[in-house]
């Protein structure tokens, strides 16, 4: 092992290779779909493609951060649905949009907090603990409007602003929703890469005992991760609600798994301790491009599901083979 830091190649930094692979995957897919249907690379399609990435990116960030702590959050989809239903129900019943969002935010964050307490404090296996909150939150999403989807939230004033900001409005070729998502990503990227909190999140996932013995507050760190995840689901819920103009009880179904896919394709290990948030952008893109591209290529829904499933498994398999082949044997004296 040498100490010459300048010799350390960019690719050999932990996690970088997976991220690069994921972005290469994005470019390759773009080429394939552009070849299959030239409409794919028309500005209009790319614009809406970017917007369709947003919900996947958000849940990918949340699930990714929870995965880095070595846990999993199954409640993501339900919290998304809850967020859409609570905000829509409140707005429909005449509550001010801002107040509705604040109430919604508090409700969603308290689920994250609850997950943190269950997993971090009472040591419930994360799979079980968040399975419970997942079911509870789906129930709440159904309960808030008495088991009905809400009606249209209507127009005028803040409601228009809300729809524009989260979905319909754009500046140039960029939808506002995309900008908001990138800002959210930037904040969490900063936290994960440059702050002690981020370092602790990695440490807890890497070796929870070592972290505890070094004075890291494991409970607090776990709770922060789950609360971030709940916040991301909350944002994704608002986007879904703005897009539909109403609250659907089905909103966010299976999104916890889309989050896992975005995180894992982006190179975040579900075993904890490693992965870079940059990768989630690629991971969410791969997911959205497949959906969008396969639709444009007139692939039937059933085939689409099969193809996407195969690609997800192939991505992870490739990553594992690469690790065991190269990085696995890299033990320097």
């Amino acid at each position: 092992m040498s100490i010459e830091k300048s010799n350390r190649s960019f690719l050999s930094r932990p996690g970088v290779a997976s991220v690069v692979t994921a972005f290469v995957g994005v470019v390759v897919l773009m080429f394939i779909f552009a070849y299959m249907n030239p409409n794919f690379i028309r500005p209009n399609n790319l614009m809406s493609l970017a917007r369709s990435i947003c919900p996947y990116l958000l849940v990918g960030i949340g699930q990714g951060i929870v995965c880095i702590t070595g846990n999993i959050d199954l409640s993501i989809g339900s919290v998304l649905g809850m967020s859409a239903m609570i905000s829509a129900t409140l707005v429909c019943s005449g509550v001010n949009v801002i107040l509705a969002i604040v109430i919604d935010l508090i409700a969603c964050l308290s689920v994250g907090l609850c997950n943190g307490v269950l997993v971090g404090k009472f040591k419930l296996p994360p799979f079980i603990g968040t399975l419970g909150t997942m079911t509870i939150c789906r129930g709440i999403a159904q309960l808030v409007n008495n088991n009905y989807n809400t009606g249209d939230i209507g127009t005028g004033g803040l409601k228009d602003l809300f729809r524009d900001l989260f979905y319909y409005g754009r500046v140039g070729y960029l939808y506002y929703g995309v900008i908001i998502c990138l800002l959210v990503w930037l904040v969490f990227y900063y936290i994960m890469s440059y702050t002690a909190t981020g370092r602790h999140i990695y440490a807890v996932g890497s070796n929870v005992d070592a972290a505890r013995l070094s004075g890291v507050d494991v409970f607090k760190t776990t709770t922060i991760a789950y609360t971030i995840s709940a916040f991301c689901s909350f944002m994704a819920g608002l986007i879904t609600m703005a897009a539909a103009g109403m609250g659907s009880m089905q909103a966010g179904m299976s999104y916890e798994m889309y989050g896992v896919a975005a995180a894992v394709i982006g190179g975040i290990s579900t075993l904890g301790g490693s992965g870079l948030l940059v990768g989630v952008i690629a991971g969410a893109s791969v997911w959205a491009i497949l959906q969008n591209g396969l639709t444009l290529a007139n692939v039937p829904v059933a085939m689409r599901n099969i193809i996407i499933g195969v690609i997800v498994v192939a991505c992870v398999l490739f990553d594992i083979l690469r690790r065991s082949g190269i990085i696995g044997k890299k033990k320097t004296a």
Binding site: R199, Y202, A203, A210, G215
Partner: peptide, 20 residues
């Protein structure tokens, strides 16, 4: 040994008492 294998040497040494 109680180390976080994924973190760097310096990150492990300063874990829980990071310089900010």
């Amino acid at each position: 040994l109680n180390m976080c294998q994924h973190l760097s040497v310096a990150a492990n040494m300063f874990l829980g008492r990071e310089l900010i």
